[in-house]
Design a protein around this nucleic acid. Structure first.
Lengths: 228, 228
DNA sequence: GTACGTTCGGAACGATCGTTCGAAACCTTG
DNA sequence: CAAGGTTTCGAACGATCGTTCCGAACGTAC
């Protein structure tokens, strides 16, 4: 009805059949998984939002879990590739010298905010990545998290260790995770939903972005505690 | 069978009927909501884990949503009360002088880690508070979040503004939320599930606790950016 | 003893879940 | 045109969901 479900007109057609359906399914999955979670989203609501049928979803992905995996992978993989590109470029430019904390934080955060800026209001939803990877069925997501983030975490931790040589490896691992927590929180849209600042209009993305870079850089550079 | 469902023995009885069932339901809800989420937990699995029946849950709470609300409230309310107590005590001791950032961070974090230490391995699960308040059905949880955290957020933000007078109110609100994000991430158990540090055994709670205090204090005290 | 309000188990309700299946519709090859 | 593979739909499957209802078991008051 709303989406021209049947090309019954006879004369002029629409976009190619396969790729379009698959992409529309991923788009709808992204949005609905972000808003209602994996268990909270029914395949019926999802396929209806995508303007197709349940069978199409099973044809292209095989199961609901595989659809989640594909949806996550589509956004996370290019974003992490971009992170590694920036890290590589920065290390090449530094010619062996340790990178600054701000450079590392920027290389990690910028691809995320760019993705967010590019797709604001469209179907693509970065909230989804943040919200779901860290709250949905752990037995499905934690393996994917290891697979998608393993190299990125290792590379950035190594670079951080060179930037902050006085910080122990354990402490650095913790601080890196603290930073990830901040990022996830922001990307999940919790800033707009905070108990304070409920009535006022949300701050622009770049303000949040720069505030987050400052916060994380300072936190990562915090003086070491008693070594115990 | 396993829980002496029927006091059919005739002679010796067990604990009082009402309070016990209600508490067992809240305990089971806490654990299962933490592990599988609200939508991912069925009332049948929940009541079976509690050693009772579905009817008992509906008798005591009326609905699944109200059970979630009660479960969240049971843990969050006393914890926030403890936060306010510590803040009051610190402000009384300071006699009008602004508090240190570390004091404020400690007053906010300590009750959480104490709750975590007290109930480690038992049925009580702090993960639940963190994981659910920030990822479950927003239309149910965000109102509760405002209700439970409104005063605490306001009070701590005011104290932070006195501790960091050179920081703008917007920036301070952001940094406070960044800190909440870190905390949520830690309490959700994401540290143990991080892509790196997967094989090694988890760090002790107090190590994480102190590292988090250092990280947040430094982040909150970060130099202001260009005022724009 | 009977009567009553509280507490809770068992069975059943309608609704919805993820999945499967067979047949259309489509696009490409002959 | 016909043949074959790809893509999609509608209907149905069994399972499970939250909820409701009825009655039994309980403690208490008379």
């Amino acid at each position: 009805m709303s989406q021209a479900t049947h090309p019954r007109d006879g004369s002029l057609e629409e976009a190619p059949p396969c790729r379009n359906t698959k992409r529309r399914l991923l788009d709808a999955a992204e949005r609905l998984f972000a808003e209602r979670g994996f268990e909270g989203t029914s395949l019926r609501a999802l396929t209806q939002a995508a303007g197709t049928s349940i069978s199409a979803a099973h044809y292209h992905f095989g199961s609901k879990e595989e659809l989640l995996r594909a949806t996550l992978e589509r956004r996370v993989a290019p974003m992490n590739a971009s992170r590694l590109e920036r890290l590589d470029a920065a290390e090449r430019a530094a010619a062996g010298a340790p990178l600054s904390v701000e450079t590392l934080v920027g290389a990690y955060l910028d691809p995320l905010f760019e993705e967010r800026a590019t797709h604001r209001g469209s179907l693509s939803d970065v909230r989804f990545v943040a919200a779901r990877l860290y709250s949905d069925p752990p037995e499905l997501v934690s393996a994917l998290k290891r697979e998608l983030f393993g190299e990125v975490s290792r590379r950035f931790l190594d670079a951080l260790a060179r930037a902050l040589p006085e910080c122990s490896r354990d402490e650095l691992g913790l601080r890196f995770q603290f930073g990830v927590g901040c990022m996830v929180h922001v990307m999940s849209g919790q800033i707009e939903d905070a108990p304070h600042a409920q009535g006022r209009d949300p701050l622009p993305d770049d303000v949040v972005h720069h505030a987050l870079v400052r916060f994380l850089s300072a936190g990562l550079r915090a003086p070491a505690g008693d070594p115990r």
